[in-house]
Design a protein around this nucleic acid. Structure first.
Lengths: 204, 204
DNA sequence: CATCATACGTGAATTATATCACAAAGCAAA
DNA sequence: TTTGCTTTGTGATATAATTCACGTATGATG
């Protein structure tokens, strides 16, 4: 088990990572906490506290070395761990995610998609096969996959989650607007797009 | 301006909404806070506190009327406000979002997509036209659109954000792995998919 | 090399969020 | 209608997250 870092800190670290990637492209060498803070509209001491969980140190009166800092974040958050996953549901969103090559930079490797519609099965998306959902238990076992990206229609979400749990899937990245009911040892991350949108636009 | 409700509360309200929708379909009439809490693995008093910000009241020894509660949530979070938006970038993700009809249930109305690639312009996705990005300022002004859903490649994100700000866009739903720099009066919501994934899989 | 300005690192103080605990209300059943 | 059980609503308490404040380090400048 990793060092315990709260979700909020991890989330900010990923945002720092985005900024650092930009700065590296721009050939900037150092960035002070104040600047990171300004971009995220948070306090600079917060930035320094977050960074203090990494094994990284900044330089007085200069700031942080962007390359080193980015590497520290990648190391801590496990960018280089190879995380294999299946996409469940080859609909619009599932297809879009399958085509999103950026995932690989973050260690996420999508091996295949699964669907129930016979006419989709056998086709490929971005070199990834769409397979019959019934083949999943076998394949997840053989390829040691325990992450599923759930993009099926809302009405089928819980039934599919049950199926996945039975197939020994332990992590479900849930893109359906559903609160899934799963056993203790299975983790669900609700992407909850519309919820986020409502949060975002609440004050409009 | 709306009553002030913290992001955390709003987020949970949207999850309650998902659960309630399920329960309504299952023809359940009442749900106790304890049950909502169990599904989200939180404390039941938390659920009651959240609900207390709505103008809704539960019944002792019975729970909350699911239909009433859902309506209260929708009212408070502004489901019925018509929020018009443009999708910027007709790539995989942009297209997928354009096809995602579920948005309408939440008051989000996507009027059109915009892109720079000439070969995409003029085509339609789910009855929405893909237009030349240069037409945006005029159209956003005429149609009174101030929400943009940003799905362009990372490298173009900041430049496009600048362009949008100039076109008087005030809300940017940012799907690019970038921290955008915008003026005070412009709101950005970072969807940060990969960041969420890393949070989710941090302990794997 | 002395002075000034900048920026890190981190305890202390503050603010926000979540949990506890219990009075009051309402249903069910004898 | 009385007793027992369940559940709400909410102050009090506990925990978590953020901001403040300041000592220390380092680079720049005259």
């Amino acid at each position: 088990m990793n060092k315990n870092i709260s979700d909020k800190v991890i989330n900010r670290l990923t945002l720092y990572h985005c900024i650092l990637t930009d700065y590296i492209e721009k050939n900037v060498e150092y960035i002070p906490s104040k600047q990171l803070a300004a971009l995220l509209k948070i306090d600079d001491s917060q930035v320094r506290k977050d960074i203090s969980v990494l094994n990284n140190s900044g330089k007085s009166s200069v700031g942080y070395n962007v390359v080193e800092l980015r590497t520290s974040i990648e190391k801590t958050l496990g960018f280089s761990k190879n995380k294999k996953a299946f996409i469940i549901g080859a609909g619009n969103l599932g297809m879009a995610l399958a085509k999103y090559d950026n995932f690989q930079h973050y260690g996420l490797n999508i091996l295949a998609l699964f669907d129930i519609q016979k006419e989709k099965i056998g086709k490929t998306v971005n070199n990834k096969l769409i397979l019959d959902i019934n083949k999943l238990p076998n394949l997840s076992n053989k390829s040691n996959v325990d992450i599923a990206i759930l993009t099926v229609p809302r009405q089928q979400a819980q039934a599919m989650a049950d199926f996945l749990v039975n197939a020994n899937i332990k992590y479900i990245w849930n893109f359906t607007p559903t609160v899934l009911s799963v056993p203790e040892d299975v983790q669900v991350w609700n992407e909850n797009l519309m919820g986020n949108f409502l949060q975002f636009t609440y004050n409009i």
